[in-house]
């Protein structure tokens, strides 16, 4: 299945809401290369930052507990990419953001955005390159940034600073994980 067909399928799944220009733009996804190719410093445009924040929030949305944006995940991701990742991952991340720009991600409706991410998730599984793909970077850094932030951790888990004992226990219904 080529990319155009995949996109058509997603479009059909969503009730044909993708516009022709969007599909054409997404079609160029594969051949697109970022102008930042040889630049080891990593920075994002305002649009790219907005896209990153929206995707992070879609991965961990605000519910009755804080969401990714509430705990500063978008800035965390940029900082982590700068400090802990190198050029190949930077490029992979920028390529991913560029493709999101091509589909005008920020102009899409909520269900279209969901469709794009679902497509992205499935497409990512086909990537065999050793370089971590965009979606995987987005996910690992969003989850890391959220679940280890003070607000995210405390809202999600039962935080135990000093257990003081080691005990085999039975899980109660709906019991949250312990975090240490």
């Amino acid at each position: 299945m080529n990319r155009r067909e995949v996109i058509r399928n997603v479009a059909l799944m969503l009730g044909g809401t993708f516009s022709a220009p969007t599909i054409m733009a997404m079609d160029k996804w594969e051949t697109f290369t970022s102008p930042n190719n040889n630049d080891s410093s990593f920075s994002l445009t305002e649009t790219q930052q907005k896209i990153l924040a929206e995707i992070a929030e879609m991965i961990i949305p605000k519910t009755d507990t804080p969401g990714a944006k509430d705990v500063g995940v978008p800035a965390f991701i940029v900082m982590m990419l700068n400090d802990c990742y190198r050029e190949p991952e930077h490029q992979s991340f920028l390529d991913g953001l560029a493709s999101m720009e091509k589909v005008k991600f920020l102009s899409l409706k909520a269900d279209e955005r969901t469709g794009v991410l679902k497509l992205l998730e499935q497409e990512t599984k086909k990537i065999t390159s050793k370089v971590t793909p965009f979606w995987r970077l987005m996910k690992e850094l969003t989850l890391l940034g959220y679940f280890t932030s003070e607000a995210g951790l405390k809202a999600s888990f039962e935080y135990v600073q000093i257990p003081g004992k080691l005990e085999l226990i039975k899980l109660k219904p709906n019991q949250k994980s312990f975090a240490y």
Binding site: I59, P61, E121, K139, E140, L143, S156, S177
Partner: peptide, 18 residues
């Protein structure tokens, strides 16, 4: 959750459980 499929409300909720 990193390698698993999914994102959004239910996904977020599921990761709070062992």
């Amino acid at each position: 959750g990193v390698a698993a499929d999914g994102f959004g409300d239910d996904f977020k909720q599921s990761l709070t459980k062992p």
